[in-house]
Amino acid sequence: MSAASPTHTLFLVPSANHAVQGERALLRAGLGCRLIPVPRDLSSQCGVCLRVRFADRGRTEEALTAAGTVVEAIHDVLMD
């Protein structure tokens, strides 16, 4: 049985400020995103990350880099 394809990509950032800055950058770039808590299976610490559609992964990475948003990790996930 093959694993299901990811639906979303999570961009983990170092702080809530980075998340807010990243969200603004993505909205300016016309990319839909949501701030959500970092899932427990990715980190036991309280954190916030940016969730985008998996299809937007590449454009998101480019937009965040252009905006100078620090990204600590990227995870492709299956979510509702």
Binding site: A16, N17, A19, V20, L35, I36, P37, V48
Partner: peptide, 14 residues
């Protein structure tokens, strides 16, 4: 307040 808004969004999501 900026942090508080992020935390509340996180709370509602959770």
């Amino acid at each position: 307040d900026d942090l508080g808004r992020v935390l509340l969004r996180n709370f509602l999501h959770t």
